[in-house]
Design a protein around this nucleic acid. Structure first.
Lengths: 220, 220
DNA sequence: TCAAAGTGGAGGAGCAATCTCTACTTCGGC
DNA sequence: GCCGAAGTAGAGATTGCTCCTCCACTTTGA
């Protein structure tokens, strides 16, 4: 990754790690919209230090997401490697949501091309054929509704992510319910329902969920 | 509504209408985050005029959503009035989404308590028992999965709204697909699938949809 | 030991929204 | 058609951010 760089002085390297850790935490909690000043504060270093190490916010994002992107591709490939075509679909969607759980910045970075550079695009290019194959195979086997299209995958991911983000504070697992419902909706027909895997949102928490859904959702 | 107010001069009333119209359009297009300066510009009046008529942004929002709220309640009551318990669920969800279609500000105003005043809360208070009744009746009739909870209704609405908003520019009807999938997922069991009612997003448009999903989604 | 490397954080620059203020325009009752 | 009350435009003051620079100081390690 950062191979041909000349090594930093020991204190500098320590600070770099502190900044990365702070960035990881803050991005996960509040999304990409956090200021580098905030990152500096959380890391316990001065802003100047952050800017010396990461000239743009992009640079920090890149450093943080370098390896997370690969996890995405691995997940899709694992899914495709499964014998059962339906379980491929389940693994693809569930695996994505698991990767994203607890990190408010994951979606914006991974799903749009507005952050980071080549690495992401490369991942996306790798991903598409794998996803297409998973979908086609499942339809061929008659376990996925025939009117389903490959682009419904990102659309569904976007949809379930919204629940994941909005409910993060009140019911961090509810997305499993909605995903179960969606998965049941993807079958051509079925007898019985999929296990929901999480309790519903408490009625008292709905307002807070809605508030979270609509306030400064993470910028771009 | 605005009954005990003394009538405005003719030009003032005309401007008030221009401002309302401009607000309606801009809120629908860009969400609640638009500045009152922008509203003034679109209306073709000065900012001062806007602030004279609507001291806070709230006042403008209130005036605009006064009657839209009632539509919500009417929709739920219509749904409950249907004979078929399953069609009640369909009407409730589909009706809500239709009301919201094409208006980026509808969700934030209607689903959270961060805008407007009493009217909304009153509507919500009226709504809850109706929704509960619709859900219970459908479950009693065995047409809705038994592990479904009333709070899954707002959660699903939130989820499908995300698609509606993100795809507004590239595929304004796609939400019908995702709603069809979700509805199919709500049955205890079934044979065959619901008509999707719209084409999938074109693969080329996915990036734009994602961008729309994550850039300044309308504030709170 | 000391030059090179690194640091902190006050503060300047930029931006965008809110809201005020007043010289001017328009309305409409008489 | 006059004229005072009502209404208007929009420049700019105010506020509240974030980004990013700069340099006197500290730390490191050959």
């Amino acid at each position: 990754m950062s191979a041909p760089e000349k090594p930093l002085r020991r204190d500098a390297e320590r600070n770099r790690q502190l900044i990365l850790q702070a960035g990881r935490e803050l991005f996960a909690e509040r999304g990409l919209a956090v200021s580098l000043d905030d990152v500096a504060a959380r890391a316990g270093v001065g802003v100047g230090t952050v800017y010396r190490r990461f000239p743009h916010r992009e640079a920090l994002v890149d450093a943080l997401f370098e390896h997370r992107i690969d996890e995405l591709v691995v997940n899709a490939e694992q899914a495709l490697a499964l014998d059962d075509p339906w379980e491929s679909i389940v693994h693809l969607l569930e695996g994505y949501m698991e990767l994203q759980a607890g990190d408010r910045s994951f979606g914006p970075v991974v799903l749009t091309d507005a952050h980071g550079r080549g690495g992401l695009d490369r991942a996306r290019i790798k991903l598409k054929p794998v996803v297409d194959q998973i979908v086609l195979r499942a339809q061929g086997a008659g376990v996925l509704r025939s009117d389903f299209a490959p682009t419904d995958i990102p659309t569904i991911i976007l949809m379930v992510s919204q629940v994941q983000n909005a409910a993060r504070d009140v019911a961090p697992q509810v997305w499993r319910r909605q995903l179960a419902i969606v998965l049941d909706g993807l079958r051509p027909s079925r007898d019985g329902t999929r296990e929901m895997g999480a309790d519903a949102v408490d009625a008292m928490d709905v307002p807070q969920m809605m508030r979270a859904a609509f306030e400064t959702p993470g910028k771009g």
